[in-house]
Write a protein that binds this DNA or RNA. Structure first.
Lengths: 219, 219
DNA sequence: CAATGTATGTACTAGTTAGTTAGTTATACG
DNA sequence: CGTATAACTAACTAACTAGTACATACATTG
């Protein structure tokens, strides 16, 4: 009786899977931190939303802060992996810029949790990113692609040659990040949801126009 | 002896000043909330940084959330009052856009706490702004000024006529907000401080160029 | 198949935190 | 001058919250 029988549903089949436990905690934590911030998220609540217990958070991540840093690292490496797939080398510079801005636009739209984590991390003065070895040395595929596009465009005499890739990247990010990160206050004040599906194409084109107009302007 | 004498420094002249107490609490709270977020800020710490006690926070603001909302309201009304002073009606449209972008740029740079509060409020899905009657009906002087500039520019045949004032306002805000709000993660990743004084003029001109290039482009 | 380390659950704790209770004192006003 | 009221203080509390001690079960490997 004390022995576990296959027909005892009370004692669930407690299969052990360290990787599953770890990744489940991480997934739940990412959502919770993105939703409520570092201070607002609750370790007990994160634990409750997993199939395991709070003890496991401390076992795998050391504590609340370790868990938050791991969530950040995972979010960043995930986004960077996506960016790595950007292939615009074969396109002509103008079309490459259009594709790159559209891709960035799409990335930001489809990863709101990532954007929120970045906002939260900025509220914390990027203290955790600075501390993380993984995040400090992370390459930026989108910037690399942009740098090469600008070089080609400049060589072809299509783009002005006094522009800095980081500045152009900043323009694109600013627009895409603002649209997602400031969605709620913007809507409250201007009564417009920047993520309204009906406005999507308009904004997706606009950021391409904006950047290209700037790049092709006379110096 | 029990009577308070002018030469007894132990019993400080506890002058009562409701307005001073209230505004001191509000000033400290604004800094604390901007620094640590709503959940991260501590009522006890806010109280400790004032000359009064925690009880007064509850006396004047009802609670932590009431205090946070009051801080938000004050920050927004302060910024709006500043914007009201924008006077670009007498300038020609191109110059007016240059002035307006530069002014917005300056405002954002000199009010980092306001930008941080906005970021924090977005993390909270603008729940508090939506609830505040003061903030819901706040006019937007910068947008009004922009609308009139665009009309004049369009009438003069200088600007394209398919642009929406809210969209242009969004571009300008996106750039200026991003530069301040995402300063820390941007620096950690791209090793560039967007608020470096040496880059200030460069960025201040850039946002004007960017918007004007867009407004004067062929449709 | 024993045994050893990894993985997991339960129950607890110390410290914190928002909010409150029960008053006291200054000041305006008749 | 006395008194009503607004402004203010100190000490307290109940609930929460991150983190831990301790016990135990699974599974891998020799």
């Amino acid at each position: 009786m004390a022995t576990q029988t296959p027909d005892s549903p009370a004692t669930a089949p407690v299969t052990r899977d360290a990787e599953r436990t770890r990744s489940e905690i991480l997934a739940v934590a990412t959502r919770e931190f993105a939703d409520k911030g570092f201070a607002g998220a609750r370790v007990d609540e994160i634990a409750a939303k997993t199939r395991t217990t709070k003890r496991m958070i401390y076992y795998y991540f050391g504590g609340k802060e370790g868990l938050y840093i791991s969530a950040l690292e995972q979010a960043y490496t995930g986004i960077r992996a996506l960016e790595q797939q950007v292939d615009v080398e074969h396109l002509d510079p103008t079309e490459a810029i259009r594709q790159l801005t559209a891709l960035t636009f799409d990335h930001h739209e489809s990863h709101p949790d990532f954007i929120r984590l970045v906002s939260i991390e900025n509220i914390h003065y990027a203290r955790h990113i600075a501390r993380s070895e993984i995040l400090a040395g992370l390459a930026n595929p989108a910037l690399d692609a942009l740098t090469r596009i600008l070089e080609r465009g400049r060589a072809a005499g299509r783009f002005r040659d006094d522009v800095d890739p980081i500045d152009v990247h900043m323009m694109i990010s600013a627009f895409c990040v603002f649209r997602t990160a400031n969605r709620y206050t913007f809507k409250a004040i201007f009564k417009r949801d920047m993520l309204d599906p009906g406005l999507r194409e308009h904004y997706r084109t606009m950021i391409g126009d904006l950047v290209l107009e700037y790049l092709t302007a006379a110096e």
